[in-house]
Every structure is written in C-alpha cells, then in structure tokens.
C-alpha cells in the first residue's frame, strides 16, 4: 500500500503514455465502437475509425490526464466519423434519403416474419409520436438533417427541436421496452 495504485499522476512521463493509451483503448473499445456505430451505421467502418483514432492518440506530443485522453479519444473518433460520412456522400453522389435507406436496410440480421413484425412495430411507434415531434425525429434521425436545419425548416429554436428529438427517443425506449417484455 506504499504507492497509490488507482490515482494516476496528472502529467505522466511520456515513456508510459503508450501503455496508458493502450489500457484506455482496451477499457473503452466497446463503448467507442457502439458510439461510432451509431454515427456510421456500419460495424466495419466503426472498427476502422476506432483504429484510426487510436493511432492519432498515440501520436499526441503531450498526452494529458486520463479524463482528457478519454475525451480526446471520443472527440477524435467523432470527427473522423464525420469526415468519413461527408466523403462517402460526395463519392457516391446519392441523395441522403437513399443513402440512409440503403445503410439501414443492408445489415438486417433477421428475415421473414420476425423482421416484418419488427418493422411494423418501429413504424407504429414512430406514428404514435405527436406530429411536430415526429417531424423533427424523422428529419433528424432518418434524413440526417442537423438540428439547426430541422429548426430552420420548422421555424423553431434549435433547443426546441433538440427537446422534441430527446422526448421522441425516450418515448421509443419506453415503447420498445414494453414490446420486448
């Protein structure tokens, strides 16, 4: 008990930074992949971006404390994901609607009746949302419009649109919990 194990020094020597980053990455890999998967909707791309973020982290001149590193990891990954989405859109020259449609439809693991049932569940849940809330939710989550874009289209504040989408997500969570139970 002579050396405190759990508290890392705020500015560590560069020598052990690599090990610490590896540990950090291991500890957060799963969370990071989930995080990226939500953005990219492709497990493969999520893995590629996570790896790229890891490399960037190792290239840092002076890595800070663990809290900072964690935040940096996710922020870097988020930025890389945005870049990837943008270039993908440019490259493939497909409109957003089709892009999202394709991405969403491709990795469906289930087939037949179960998938059909699941789809009708999801559609009916979305249909239950109050109209303005549904508009914001669909535009933001399915058409890939930013909150600002949705806000402009609806003539509402960005804050209001954010609230609508949050409420919609929570409602979906409650409904899906009920469906699964």
């Amino acid at each position: 008990m002579s050396a405190p194990e759990s508290t890392a020094p705020p500015q560590p020597a560069p020598a052990d930074a690599g090990t610490r980053i590896a540990a950090l990455f291991e500890a957060h890999n799963r969370t990071l992949l989930r995080f990226l998967n939500c953005r990219l909707r492709s497990p493969q791309e999520a893995k590629e971006v996570a790896q790229e973020a890891y490399v960037r982290l190792l290239q840092l001149d002076s890595p800070g404390g663990i809290g900072y590193l964690r935040a940096f990891l996710f922020k870097t990954a988020a930025n890389l994901a945005v870049d990837r989405l943008k270039s993908a859109r440019r490259r493939e020259r497909i409109d957003q609607l089709e892009f999202f449609h394709e991405q969403a439809a491709a990795p469906s693991p289930e087939s037949g009746i179960a998938a059909e049932q699941e789809l009708s569940t999801l559609l009916s849940i979305i249909e239950e949302l109050p109209p303005k809330c549904r508009y914001a939710f669909i535009k933001h989550r399915f058409y890939g419009n930013s909150l600002r874009e949705v806000a402009a289209a609806m003539n509402l504040s960005e804050r209001m649109v954010r609230l609508y989408v949050e409420r919609a997500l929570t409602y979906c969570r409650i409904r899906l919990e009920g469906v699964d139970a």
């Binding site: 939500c38 399915f142 997500l169």
Partner: peptide
C-alpha cells in the same frame, strides 16, 4: 434504441 429505430427505412 437509436440503432434499432434506424433499421426502419426512411
């Protein structure tokens, strides 16, 4: 939930 909802085609 967000991922699951997204499986519905726009």
């Amino acid at each position: 939930v967000a991922l699951r909802m997204r499986t519905a085609p726009a």
